[in-house]
Nucleic acid binder design. Structure first.
Lengths: 110, 110
DNA sequence: CTGATCTACAACCATGTGGTTGTACGTTAC
DNA sequence: GTAACGTACAACCACATGGTTGTAGATCAG
């Protein structure tokens, strides 16, 4: 069932977003608890603006959401984004398994 | 069990490699059948050198292997690379599920 | 109101990426 | 041996990325 409602561009953005250790760490954190952008920025040895950019990349990739609360922006993990990415890789493994089965079938043809 | 024997750099390379539609297509193809680099290049509307670079990126990301056969290089899918990437995303989902359970636990505390 | 805090965004820089063309070299076919 | 094929790699280009600093607008605390 290779039915993900994601365009190629969206998948690009998703994997691209995950291809950075800082961003993966942010995702892991905001899946566990809520953070403001500045709360996140405190966790890393880089400028606020840099962290802000990382969050923006994750938001565009549908891996986190931001919600304004007072003067803060609360960042939350978007687990269905993660799930969609995982399902894509599931598809690859399934394709591969089908091929293996096909080969074994041929080999065992008596 | 967040135990993947992958360095952060390796994970970076893996997701980075998957963040391109052409490369994902190559992975899907070589998981099903063997291709030479030029055989792959025929499939896409770009130069041989461009495809060659994509294959090199996938190889560095441990998602495919190349094996010399005569004057050709045979490209094969490396399913355990895909599996490792998927398991990482599994970990994120697990983290998130634990948090949800924890929240429900707190709410149901009578 | 004032000052501190949180965020947004622009400008800039160095480096990386995805593509190109061109050249060179080993291998196969004849 | 020679020509064609498959590959490797360098040089180049336009553009994206990941970081910086600086400026400015909202919001909160006193």
């Amino acid at each position: 069932m290779v039915v993900d409602q994601l365009s190629e561009d969206e998948v690009d953005r998703m994997f691209q977003a995950l291809a950075d250790a800082t961003r993966r760490d942010i995702v892991a954190r905001v899946l566990v608890a809520e953070y403001s952008v500045s709360g996140l920025a405190e966790q890393y040895d880089m400028s606020f603006a840099a962290v802000q950019k990382h969050v923006a990349v994750l938001e565009r990739a549908l891996l986190v959401t931001k919600e304004k609360r007072g003067r803060e922006q609360i960042v939350r993990g978007q687990v269905d984004g993660v799930q969609r990415a995982r399902r894509l890789l599931d598809d690859y493994e399934r394709i591969w398994r089908q091929r293996v089965e096909r080969i074994e079938e041929i080999l065992e043809k008596d």
